[in-house]
Amino acid sequence: MLYALLVPFADEIGLFNVFRYITFRSGGALLTALLIGFVIGPRLIRLLRSKQNGGQPIREDGPQSHLVTKRGTPTMGGFLILVAGSLSTLLWMDLRSGFVWVALMVTLSYGAIGFLDDYRKVVHKNSKGLPGRGKLFLQVIIAVSAAIWITLLTPGPLEHTLAVPFFKNVLIDLHVFFYLLAIGVIVGASNAVNLTDGLDGLAIVPVMIAAGVFAMIAYLVGNKVFADYLQIHYVPGTGELAVFCGALMGAGLGFLWFNAPPAKVFMGDTGSLSLGGALGAISVSTKHELVLAIVGGLFVLETVSVIVQVASFKLTGKRVFRMAPLHHHFEKLGWAEPTIVIRFWIIASVLALIGLSSLKLR
């Protein structure tokens, strides 16, 4: 919005020229989202606590310590992220950017699914929420819409292709199967973040780290000079996604202020589904789907732990881990919650650096 209002006057008022720069607007989006989070956070937490009467139901089959330490904590804190991130994005983005509108559509739609899930948990006092198949069906429908929209925005030679990191000339034309890839990435990323969200601060920091990495990727992919220099595929218009990523980081920081141990609020599916979907949509738009698997490797690891656990139990009757997802396994081993969270943050940071290295190692 500020871009549309102020840039036309940049020739007369030199100060307004800074709004032409994506880097400036990304920083502005981050700070604005952070301030919005600080302002609305306390009010939102009071509202959620007054409406939920007991907070988020705690899994009876989960770690027993959670029944004591986390009982009564309100959920749906993802509203803070959605409101702060969306308002900040709309304020600082170039409103003509189709890629940002796709990312916003996925984020808000998945947030709505998460809200329905959280609402059922709170109202019915049941930790299961929406039926799994129904939730997955809604996610797929939204991902299909996003995949089609992204291909319409992407230049012809790239619209159905998969870029392979670390190889400059490898571009696989998937034809119609690209839609299956895009749907899988968006839905998979959404549910992977959802599985990771089990301890105070565990999911939000890796999400912010991934958003920071993709802010840089989006900026470089959307700039022809930098894209040619780094020998990555240039996708016009994706640079504006850096503004969206900046807003996600700021909103995430604002949420972390209240989610830091001991958490005053949980993000719930309202936050985790929307954040994962956002990362998936950004990776598909920038042609860095496989890099997301590296940068978001922590989310992949958590998801694989659940798949392995379920498969092993069904096939052999035995469990590989003491409990899945993986962070609960370490809780069962006696690791303190802050220890698990900080060590997982370190893993996420290392994976982010590996993902970033794919931009140059080609």
Rank of each mutant, 00 (worst) to 15 (best):
T32F: 13
F214G: 03
H288V: 00
I36F: 00
L315H: 05
L153W: 02
A203Q: 04
L199Q: 09
F344P: 09
G246C: 12
V341R: 01
T339P: 13
E240F: 06
T154E: 07
D173T: 01
V123M: 11
V144L: 13
N223Q: 11
A210T: 13
Y219F: 14
L15M: 03
A189V: 10
F16I: 05
H124Q: 15
L153I: 14
I204Y: 14
A336S: 09
G28S: 02
G132N: 11
I13H: 08
G98M: 02
I204A: 11
I209F: 04
H175D: 10
L5I: 05
S190K: 04
N259E: 04
R25T: 08
E60K: 07
E337Q: 15
P131S: 06
L220P: 04
A336F: 07
V106S: 00
L174G: 11
L248W: 00
G188K: 02
V39R: 12
V300I: 06
S305M: 08
R46Q: 12
F258T: 10
T32L: 15
A352S: 14
L108W: 14
A112K: 01
M267H: 05
S285K: 15
A348H: 04
A348E: 10
V176S: 07
Q56V: 08
N223D: 14
I58C: 02
I217L: 13
F321W: 15
A247P: 11
R343N: 12
N53T: 05
P261R: 14
V291Y: 02
I81L: 06
L158M: 02
L353I: 08
Q64Y: 13
V225N: 11
I40Y: 13
V243N: 13
S86L: 00
R71N: 13
G212I: 12
C245A: 12
H329M: 11
V187Y: 04
P338L: 14
T23K: 01
V123Q: 04
A163S: 10
P325H: 10
G297L: 13
L273V: 11
L34T: 01
V68Y: 05
V185Y: 00
V310Y: 06
G188Y: 02
G317D: 01
S285M: 06
V7Q: 04
D197Y: 10
A311T: 15
S26E: 01
G77P: 12
V306Q: 12
V122A: 00
A218D: 08
P262L: 03
L15I: 14
E240P: 10
L326G: 03
L275F: 01
K168A: 15
G14R: 14
L34R: 06
V170N: 05
R120M: 14
L104I: 06
L44W: 09
S349M: 15
G276M: 03
L273W: 03
L108S: 05
T75E: 13
A203H: 00
T303V: 00
R319L: 13
D11W: 00
K70D: 05
P236I: 09
V18R: 04
L171T: 01
S190E: 12
P261D: 10
I186C: 14
D118M: 08
S97T: 12
T316Y: 07
P157W: 04
E60G: 00
R362F: 09
G254M: 01
T73N: 12
K51N: 07
K168P: 08
G184F: 03
L199S: 10
P325A: 03
